[in-house]
Design a protein around this nucleic acid. Structure first.
Lengths: 192, 192
DNA sequence: GGGTCAACCAAGCAAGCGCTAGTGTAAACG
DNA sequence: CGTTTACACTAGCGCTTGCTTGGTTGACCC
């Protein structure tokens, strides 16, 4: 069997696995189903991944890393006032749902299926992402743009955003831009 | 095997099943684990439930029905101004997490494991619950207490609230009352 | 005191599970 | 050239899964 590498082949297999994990759930997805989707036999799958768990970890890692990169880029390329930064983060978050939806759904639904080591490693990635949010929310709180307890505001906003994977249709009439604007409007108050 | 009845024994078994479904997830919970938790043998389980799916449906049904009852009571016993009603709903929602947490976690995480008929039936229950929210939110929007698109505001609020099952510790220092107040403060604007 | 009935048990079946072992093959390497 | 490497295959092991079957128990009933 192979080491944990980052071959393009593995990336593609990971993408296909994400698709199946979303459709069926991790536990219901068998290695035979995965193999068929990938166009190989089930035994060959273990040449690319140590075990089934590692496939799950790869899916979630991909998605979270992408989200982190996109969020950082968005913050680098926006105005520096709190509202613009808030808007950029919300928009970036929703746009990842367009490109990386499967991975994010898996991350949200199947997190508990990760073994402890993977959960630890990926937890740090997720924390880094949420830290970006807390930074931006802190600025908004300091500017009086948002009111309330830092901890709670952060959870409520993350909840509202993460929940979008349940109902948001990327091919519908509302753009990520629309949603971001609406969310910011809902939670912000005019400067004192 | 039995018909789908509402015996107290079945209610108790359902409660215990909810506990296990939360700990392990539906797919990972075997009928043997369920039986052991219930203090019976795995075969006996099918005297009370047609199959494993029906146990899941029973768990979710219980939780949703309770939430609906509690929300209706809260609305009946609060002031009639939009803010009070909003507050009552938020508080009721969070209080059900104290008493019925397991069932709600299962409803949120394992919804997709339901077969189509059960999903249809329980979907109506959930719609009734969400309709209460939309009614209250409509009043708040009409009163200018909240700004924005009705559909989106509703989803964002439901997201923030449902997400609480992920992080809220009912035995921590924050009461449902605290959370409800904070959420309302975040999304409401002073009347014009 | 025979009949009824919910509740339970022991035993096991057929299917499916994750994963392994051993092999084949074609390209890349020295 | 022979060797290595990456990737795929076949075959199947050992185990677990949801669920069924046929039978037992004890409380209650007329």
């Amino acid at each position: 069997m192979n080491v944990m590498n980052d071959s393009p082949r593995r990336k593609e297999l990971t993408r296909q696995a994400a698709q199946l994990f979303v459709q069926e759930g991790f536990d219901r997805t068998t290695v035979r189903m995965l193999a068929q989707e990938m166009g190989i036999k089930s035994g060959s799958l273990f040449h690319h991944f140590r075990d089934k768990q590692e496939i799950l970890a790869a899916v979630i890692e991909e998605g979270t890393e992408n989200a982190l990169v996109i969020a950082r880029q968005a913050l680098d390329h926006c105005d520096s006032d709190p509202e613009a930064r808030l808007h950029a983060m919300a928009r970036a978050h929703l746009e990842t749902l367009l490109t990386d939806r499967n991975a994010h759904v898996v991350a949200l639904y199947e997190w508990r299926r990760l073994d402890p080591e993977a959960r630890d490693h990926l937890g740090h990635l997720r924390d880094a992402y949420e830290a970006l949010w807390e930074e931006v929310l802190d600025e908004a709180l300091a500017a009086g743009l948002i009111r309330g307890d830092r901890f709670l505001v952060s959870r409520f906003v993350m909840g509202a955003l993460n929940w979008t994977v349940r109902w948001y249709d990327p091919h519908g009439e509302r753009s990520p831009e629309d949603l971001a604007r609406e969310l910011i409007a809902m939670i912000t108050h005019p400067a004192p």
